[in-house]
Nucleic acid binder design. Sequence first.
DNA 1: CCATCTTTGTGCACGCGTTCACAAAGACAT
DNA 2: ATGTCTTTGTGAACGCGTGCACAAAGATGG
Lengths: 254, 254
Amino acid sequence: MATGRTHRPATRSRGIPEATVARLPLYLRALTALSERSVPTVSSEELAAAAGVNSAKLRKDFSYLGSYGTRGVGYDVEYLVYQISRELGLTQDWPVVIVGIGNLGAALANYGGFASRGFRVAALIDADPAMAGKPVAGIPVQHTDELEKIIKDNGVSIGVIATPAGAAQQVCDRLVAAGVTSILNFAPTVLSVPDGVDVRKVDLSIELQILAFHEQRKAGEETPAGDGALPAATPRQTSADQGPDGDVPAVMPA
Amino acid sequence: MATGRTHRPATRSRGIPEATVARLPLYLRALTALSERSVPTVSSEELAAAAGVNSAKLRKDFSYLGSYGTRGVGYDVEYLVYQISRELGLTQDWPVVIVGIGNLGAALANYGGFASRGFRVAALIDADPAMAGKPVAGIPVQHTDELEKIIKDNGVSIGVIATPAGAAQQVCDRLVAAGVTSILNFAPTVLSVPDGVDVRKVDLSIELQILAFHEQRKAGEETPAGDGALPAATPRQTSADQGPDGDVPAVMPA
DNA sequence: CCATCTTTGTGCACGCGTTCACAAAGACAT
DNA sequence: ATGTCTTTGTGAACGCGTGCACAAAGATGG
């Protein structure tokens, strides 16, 4: 999971619980696939399976949106696609700027999932003057100096930060000052923003660390040798050098 | 947020709640920064601020690990870094393979956060024969045919999928069959895996959609014009063409 | 050695989210 | 028109996560 939203105590928005909102895109994707296969209706059971959730949960989620199903039949695919799209605000056009066009920024610019779901990459911004004018994904990169002007001219309210950690807060401040009120942060930093600004964070290394935790646990269960420090050799043997992890604290830059 | 883990009903592992595990990497990062500045100790209040969480929550989280603090003083930074690293399994070396070396895969390969936290990119794998041998981030790309051999030779238990959605399930199956038991999935699909295999998903477009929902809500509050369908012009006006989204369900490939 | 002050560790209450289980609603056949 | 069968929508119970608030623990100064 991209790791949770920051700030705002999970207040339920217009009656729709946060947890439900987070699943709507999931349903939408499954429904879109059905729509492309011209499937007219779908039951909660089928759709739940396609989205990878419990069917009771799915029905409850939909109940927050209204009664869009027909008992004995299921849900009309097209109608539901529209209702969810509208609820998520995807029937509108959302201009987005991406700041920091490194490897990740470029990947994001090329990511098809954006353009296809109501999001439009309005501009790519980078601090490196050498990047300026260079096209990435068909869009010329602009220099950070232009940031405020770009935001205002395009009416951008959503910004994506893909800069190094050190620059993130500064970029964030400028985005917010220029009028951005929603930020998707890929930089491994905690951003502080004024009230009314939403921040969501995606952290690649955090996800891996969570996996490592469970992986270690799986490996540890085989050898029920209690839980003293350092359960000896747990993961599969690596052919190469195994870092000399003795007992000293591990060091790890940034 | 990478969007939640799939499967397994959030069972609490060895007494440590999932929610706590998900925050440990956050604390670890903050602590690492302090460590680099040679700060010897830190209070729960300070550390919580740096990690962007509540101090009571942080203390409770640490209490699951044991009593590593000193009342009246705080926590020893180095010691805590080590304890959390150990708990997360980062004192070990985790070989990781990345499958799908497109824009995103290349970005991941170059991502510093991996190597620095106990993870080692053991191999890059792509289905395109033209990519084979080409170095990305200093590592030569290998062809998918080698997948099983690579997994086994390197004892890889964690795989990263950065392929197009269509190929993801197939790649997943092969990874699992070859012995991988933890998967980080960047492809916009629901993966089905046997019990015992952990999947975490990171979905860029889902995060944006959640932001859009809140953004729409913010915009809608200004004009308290009820909640009929299509609340007219809510987001800032875009200079360019506004996609002709009338009333028909929006279509969206992949 | 005692008093004071700081900061941890946690008992407790509350609220959100999940799941079960079932009644109501509608389709469909006869 | 009536009965049967399917599937929704939801009331209610339960469990997890969060945050408050405070007692216990230890440091520090006199």
